[in-house]
């Protein structure tokens, strides 16, 4: 989970290009994460120690763990621990870049340290076990975007990223949030949330992306932009917003309501209120999620 934010970090800091990221995201699921990468992530070995073992492996047909113990880089216990360690998914993404030669071990070691410090992750295992760490990572993403966020806004966006994973797929990277006053709306649907927390939500994307998005969401094989594709976009928005108001009701006993999802006809959206744009880079295209803040009292 939350490999998405690591992808955003790599892209935003110029370590990889969008094409390299997409290519890696498509392949990461099957990626075997090497023991050297896990050892760096656990802080048991440095990049240069890992490189030393890899160099030895090029002329000795022996396992990484054996050589690392022989060099005195790892103890027996540490090796066993690393082999049993459950690793966060984003290491798979990193392994693709390492194997493709896009990143060196030294670069990756620095990236891990910097990413860890930016997100105040004492231990990267926190990403597996501790929801607080994920919340921190998430907040950090929004702080980087210089976006003030309310409690409900936080719940909304965290649920949104989860729902993208749950209903469309996890092969996406969220790009830094921006504030907008207008937006050219292609294949766009919108839905209002009303009550003490009032926002208008928009989902927009180009036709080709809409067909791919709808095919995944509805688990159908759509070939053209038709009423089913449009209904899928509306359905996703309606489902997400519906789940959000259920969560708000359970969290604070505040009752919000939602309007019916609508297709947007205007080619250019002009916003009356502050509007945040969340570009979501999927491997099949870019999905634009917009939140127009009408009233944000929590």
């Amino acid at each position: 989970m939350y490999t998405q934010f690591f992808g955003n970090y790599l892209l935003a800091n110029g370590y990889v290009t969008q094409e390299q990221l997409f290519s890696a995201m498509r392949r990461q699921a099957d990626k075997h994460i090497k023991l050297g990468t896990i050892a760096m992530h656990a802080g048991y070995m440095t990049a240069s120690e890992v490189d030393t073992v890899y160099i030895r492996q090029t002329h000795e047909d022996r396992k990484f763990g054996e050589l690392a113990i022989e060099e005195g880089f790892l103890s027996n216990e540490q090796t066993i621990e690393l082999l049993r360690l459950q690793v966060p998914d984003f290491l798979g993404l990193g392994q693709v870049f390492l194997d493709d030669g896009i990143l060196t071990n030294t670069e990756f070691e620095n990236i891990l340290a910097d990413y860890r410090s930016q997100n105040e992750l004492v231990d990267l295992d926190m990403l597996i076990e501790e929801p607080e760490a994920i919340t921190k990572l998430f907040e950090n993403f929004l702080i980087v975007a210089e976006t003030p966020i309310t409690h409900n806004g936080h719940m909304f966006t965290e649920l949104l990223f989860n729902n993208f994973v749950r209903f469309v797929g996890e092969d996406y990277t969220p790009i830094t949030v921006e504030e907008l006053t207008e937006f050219p709306a292609e294949c766009c649907v919108k839905q209002e949330i009303k009550g003490n927390y009032s926002i208008v939500t928009y989902l927009a994307m180009d036709e080709e992306t809409a067909i791919a998005f709808a095919s995944r969401y509805a688990e159908e094989n759509f070939e053209a932009y038709d009423e089913y594709v449009q209904a899928s976009l509306e359905d996703f928005l309606n489902l997400h917003n519906g789940l959000f108001i259920v969560n708000v009701s359970n969290d604070s006993s505040t009752e919000l309501s939602i309007g019916t999802p609508e297709h947007v006809e205007e080619p250019l959206l002009l916003f009356d209120h502050v509007t945040y744009h969340f570009p979501i880079l999927y491997t099949f295209g870019t999905v634009h999620f917009l939140i127009e803040a009408v009233k944000l009292d929590d």
Partner: peptide, 8 residues
């Protein structure tokens, strides 16, 4: 059959 399943 709805996405809006609040208690109320």
């Amino acid at each position: 059959a709805s996405s809006v399943g609040t208690q109320s």
